Amino acid sequence: MRKKIVAGNWKMNLTLAQGEQLINDILQAGLKLAEGQEVVVATPFPYLAKAKSLLKNYPGYFVAAQNCASEKAGAFTGEVSAEMLQSVGVDYVIIGHSERREYFNETNAILAKKVDLALANGLKPIFCCGEPLAVRQAETQNEYVARQLEESLYHLTAEQLKQVVIAYEPIWAIGTGLTASAGQAQDMHAFIRGQIANKFGREAALHLTILYGGSAKPGNAAELFANPDVDGGLIGGASLVAADFAAIISSLS
């Protein structure tokens, strides 16, 4: 049975006090996670240790960083290494988010290095992939996403892949007024699982958790998560509202 995960990506939002209140409100919602279900909170770097402390006694709750450096250590002012993240108890790290790719020019090759460093330090990568509007309009999204997977993940062994979660982001449906249907989400998730099966084998593909990162909300989460190849969500704005995030977590099947 593969894991079902709802991960909340706070991005560059909230003060420490606001973040602490948000976590406490989520915990007080009284959610009961089933076996194999996880909640991941991806806070800004300064809040990671505090988040870990708040969640340490709650089984099924984990902490993620939103990024890590592509180098092990050294003269890289302002960067945060995978080893540093591991040292404060981080469990997961988001790698290759569409905003990192667009605003910080992160290439597939750079992301492959980050994946390696995360795994070497015992962190589980949440590897993001997905296509922009022009690619979707040209109907070449499958080829685009396949290249992202190939250039950043295909150097791994099947054993290493067991530690990786993939998050599909339809960039064209985020903040554009366009909406990705549950069917479109399922189609791409099934395609990704098929690509992994071709490279790593059917067993690896069946156990791979693939999250949907396209503006899931309380109103559409249940429909999205009901798809056979959608194993949860990487949630942005809705993760900043405790009631909304709790409702999305409750939508896991």
Rank of each mutant, 00 (worst) to 15 (best):
I235N: 08
E99W: 03
G237N: 02
L33D: 02
A112R: 14
L16C: 02
K199Q: 11
I110P: 06
S70K: 14
G60I: 11
T140Y: 05
D244G: 03
Y144H: 13
I174M: 00
L48D: 05
L178E: 14
A173H: 09
L16E: 06
P228I: 10
G233E: 00
G8F: 01
A190I: 04
A7Y: 02
A185F: 04
G236Q: 08
C128T: 08
A197W: 07
G232M: 08
G30C: 07
L153A: 12
I249N: 11
G60Y: 09
V80F: 02
V41G: 07
L208N: 03
A173P: 09
A75C: 03
L208W: 06
A158N: 09
N121R: 04
Y92I: 01
A138I: 09
G8P: 01
L252T: 10
I248V: 08
E143C: 06
D244T: 02
A238I: 06
K72P: 01
F76S: 11
L27K: 10
V39R: 09
G78A: 14
L234E: 04
G194C: 03
A247M: 01
C129Q: 10
M84C: 01
S251C: 15
N227V: 05
P228S: 13
L117T: 00
I26S: 05
G8W: 01
P228Q: 14
V93G: 05
H207Y: 07
G122S: 09
T77L: 05
E102N: 11
M12S: 00
F104I: 09
G201Q: 05
A120D: 13
G78N: 13
K50Q: 13
P228A: 13
Q37W: 08
T43S: 08
L133Y: 09
A204F: 05
F127N: 10
H155W: 07
Y154H: 07
S53P: 07
N24A: 11
Q195L: 08
R101A: 05
A247V: 03
I26H: 00
C129T: 15
L119C: 13
I166R: 07
Q28H: 14
F245S: 08
T209Y: 01
I174P: 01
L48Y: 01
I248H: 06
V41N: 00
A180L: 05
T140H: 07
E102C: 07
I5N: 11
C128M: 11
Q163Y: 07
I94D: 08
E169R: 06
L85N: 03
Y212I: 09
Q37H: 13
P170W: 12
A49I: 03
S251L: 12
V63H: 03
A222T: 13
E169Q: 04
V39Y: 10
E159P: 00
S87P: 06
V93P: 01
E169V: 08
S53T: 13
N198Q: 15
L22V: 07
I95Q: 10
N108G: 13
N121E: 03
L133F: 11
G237S: 06
E83L: 13
K162E: 15
